[in-house]
Amino acid sequence: MRRNFWLLLMGSLLVSLSWRPLSSTDEALKLLEDMLEETGRLQTLRYEFKKYERIRGKLMLEHMTFKLRRNPFAVYGYQHSPRKGVEVLYPAETGSQKLLVKPNTFPYLPLSLDPYSNLVLEGQHQTILATGYDQLRSLLLAAKKRYANQVEKLVRSGGRLTWDGVPCQKIILEPPQYEIQTYTVQQGDNLFRIAEKRHVGWYKIMELNGFSSPNVSLSPGTVLKVPSDYGKVIRLTIDEKRKIPLVVEVEDELGLYERYEYYKLEVNPPLTDLDFSRKNPAYNF
């Protein structure tokens, strides 16, 4: 009798598990909303970061550790590979708009650089100012607004999985009308401004138009190719409990464009000004 009871219980559990609506759009939308809210509430973050970015057709990997404060914005990063020992700090000093970089090449002196300069952005999809989740938030909010009448076509669930030991849910965003459009350069435009206005990546515009650097000078009236959305497919692996994305993967018309993986993510760790100072004795500036 007792044995039958357990069998019955397990049977009903199995049924209820298989009955759960894993790929419902409602669930995915709810999770997306929760994620936007939670990432909007973050104050500080600490995490290990693996970034895969398609640079001139090849996928490049960088492995970093980051500490981030959202307000006032500050980032410290340590590179594990490929250039072990490189350190970055933004801002270089309080009130500065420069990035402090400790290169691991001669003359082994930290450099204070414009974060938008070609030297800093060579081989990168993002500026240091895009570290964290704010850029992702703004492009997701833009997509939600653009496809407000067809969100059920934009968002769907991609099931459950475990990432870095954390139970996660995947959601997939597929802008229904992703396409390459044209954009006519206006007075005062540069690639960063156009990318910000359109909520797309400046690297993507650079790639589409065959520019060799993001600081190319644009004359008004020039017609550029610009994507309609940040990506053709965006896949988010979201920590079920904390509602923070741990993997962000973007595909465009050519395939994988970028993939960002977060490991050992700490939400709101107690970070102080010293964590964002070049005078921190643990840093090598």
Binding site: L109, P110, L111, S112, L113, F285
Partner: peptide, 9 residues
Amino acid sequence: DLLWSYGHF
């Protein structure tokens, strides 16, 4: 840029 680096460090 160079003067800043050599000056600070």
